[in-house]
């Protein structure tokens, strides 16, 4: 695989990823509406769809990173200044922020869920966890314990590795949807 092919692969995976991410955001809003309305059937359906899209986004990430580690050099270069703004990171993207914001109202609505709806909720939360795990897997393959894109030299950021950064995001995100069982 040459540099052009590697970049094309990275783009293809991310095109799919961003499309899935927007679907996930919409599905989360439908979960919120359904839970607020007490519509269990609609909530379960929207959760199941969100789960499928989260699983798909994890696969999209694995697909994007489906290249030899040495090819990642050109991919990483495409995501550093001047090609992108300083501190660029997918974790700070508008889309990711929108997804996180969409999670915040869900916890209160999902407290005390039980039965099939609870099972659907748990499956969705596991899928959310796996999506971050897929990100970490790709990151580890290419960057190891190196710094993230947002923490390149000269940015004044603490020297947290890309993996540590992802793990922190994972924990914060899952904490947003941690609920009590009935």
């Amino acid at each position: 695989m040459n540099a052009d092919r590697a970049l094309a692969r990275w783009l293809a995976g991310h095109h799919a990823f961003f499309l899935l991410l927007q679907g996930i955001i919409l599905a989360h809003r439908r979960v919120e509406e359904a839970l607020a309305d007490g519509d269990e059937i609609a909530a379960r359906r929207a959760l199941a769809q969100a789960t499928r899209m989260l699983e798909g986004s994890a696969a999209a990430m694995l697909f994007a990173g489906d290249m030899p580690a040495e090819c990642y050099v050109v991919v990483r270069e495409s995501m550093t200044p001047p090609n992108v703004p300083h501190k660029f990171s997918g974790l700070w993207s508008v889309d990711h922020r929108a997804m996180i914001d969409g999670l915040r109202p869900l916890r209160a609505l999902a407290e005390g869920l039980a039965g099939p709806l609870r099972a659907e909720w748990d499956a969705w939360k596991d899928a959310l966890d796996r999506t971050y795990a897929a990100h970490a897997c790709v990151c580890e393959h290419f960057v190891g314990d190196g710094p993230s894109l947002a923490m390149q030299p000269g940015t004044g950021q603490c020297a947290r590795s890309a993996l540590q950064n992802l793990e922190a995001f994972r924990q914060r995100t899952l904490a947003l949807v941690e609920t009590r069982r009935s």
Partner: peptide, 11 residues
Amino acid sequence: LIDGLSAVLET
């Protein structure tokens, strides 16, 4: 991956 994209259309 394919199923996730199908779910986007459904949603």
